[in-house]
Amino acid sequence: MRKLFNRIDIFIIIGVLLLSFLLFLPGLSDSKDLVAQIYVDGEVIEEINLNEVLEPYTFSPKEGTVISVKNGTIHFSEAVCRDKLCINSGELSSKGQTAACLPERIVITIKGADKTDMITY
């Protein structure tokens, strides 16, 4: 057997085997980036990588509602609803966190899961 495979053959065989796993393994594209998704009426209207935000800015997904973005965090800063629960949700800064303005059907969520898969409340 030793004569059958030289060192290069063995490298090729191991290489092919490793590739067959690596090509399909999940998690390779997993990143530590905090990506906020803004949903209006169930559709994603904006996706923001919070780690790449250099200067703080605001934008309005719907008239009267303002969302403030800065490096690493995002929050509702103005809303037309009466109870202001969305503003009271505060700044979102870790994966899986969600804030919503129910009357306006606007949801901000940070993609992915951190320590938990879902929170009961």
């Binding site: 067959s20 393994l25 999940p26 969600t98 919503a100 949801v107």
Partner: peptide, 29 residues
């Protein structure tokens, strides 16, 4: 053998593929 392993791994990855979404319904998130 490598290809077969690849196909098996691919199949299991496909099965565990996650789809995530958020919306408002029933007056809640």
């Amino acid at each position: 053998i490598a290809l077969i392993i690849g196909i098996i791994v691919f199949d299991s990855v496909k099965k565990s593929t996650e789809y995530q979404t958020t919306t408002v319904a029933m007056g809640t998130v």
